[in-house]
Design a binder for these strands. Structure first.
Lengths: 157, 157
DNA sequence: CTGTTTAATGAAAACCATTTTCATTAAATA
DNA sequence: TATTTAATGAAAATGGTTTTCATTAAACAG
């Protein structure tokens, strides 16, 4: 059975090959970074984390790989409104998967909140079902974001 | 009393002057377009609607005015993930103000849904209060977006 | 293991929405 | 009407992302 801890076949190799993609050192490095990431990373963040151990991997490859991962559904791409996309593994190692954020529009600090999520998820499920039916959408994901000013920025004014 | 139907002082002039901004033909045209807009417009959309009657107004002014309006809280700026921002008057002429969208990730068709909103708003109010308290955020707005493939794109595949 | 096919790659250029620069114009006010 | 200075357009700059193109290397057949 494929494992996610390094022993045995790497979990995503099969899916990659199945899609006709090759396994390369760069892609291994990028997935590796995403797998241990604590938060959503920008393409440049990924680059900065990959580069030290893999100077041969350029930013272009980061973008290309992230795009593939997003299209495969392995990675979620976020837009917080600051002009750069953020990426995050869909199946994080620990935390269940939420896209519920609190965004500071001043410093772009982003908090993934987990409170109140259960009721939200319940309601969203119902809403999603209703919207799918009414508008004929095939809904694949959702996002909830609260925008405001974080406590630090409130003080530092 | 300021009115919004064209008779009497224009409702936003006071707020504009109060902020030290001048009333110009370009700004009148831009606000005019936003006031009759049926949906969220990109800066270029606004430009295309303003330009015929006001060839003297450039795209730069559109961007500058929209930024002012966003900062003043008169206009909301959205990011649907296709690399261009959309703008919408906060106080639309008719519809109450919702930021609940259904986004087709293929054709970028965007539907503002109004179903299921009441329960959502109720829950969001509670969530917002809880988050504000827990994280010390001063929350000013929120957004809910469902992503998927619209019925047209599903067929056209 | 070796050769062949073709996907993957890096570097540089292109892209494109948005922002900035700067000299000019015009709104507000005296 | 004159003065002040915000607003403006055109063009250049910006910056994240994508494309181009010649080179490299993963996959796989023999």
């Amino acid at each position: 059975m494929p494992r996610r801890d390094g022993a045995g076949p790497v979990w995503w190799h099969g899916r990659f090959r199945g899609c006709g993609y090759r396994i390369t050192a760069g892609r291994e490095a990028i997935l590796g970074v995403l797998m241990i990431a604590e938060k959503h990373l920008s393409a440049e963040d990924v680059y900065n984390k990959v580069h030290p151990a893999n100077p041969a991997v350029g930013l272009t490859t980061i973008y290309r790989t992230l795009e593939i991962l997003v299209n495969m559904g392995l990675v979620f791409k976020f837009d917080f409104g600051d002009g750069r996309a953020r990426y995050e593994l869909v199946e994080g190692s620990k935390k269940s998967h939420h896209h519920h954020h609190l965004v500071c529009t001043k410093c772009m600090r982003i908090i993934d909140y987990t409170e109140f999520i259960n009721e939200e998820i319940e309601l969203l499920k119902t809403t999603e079902k209703g919207l799918s039916k009414k508008y004929g959408f095939d809904i694949t994901s959702h996002i909830i974001q609260f925008y405001g000013i974080c406590s630090v920025c409130q003080k530092g004014n």
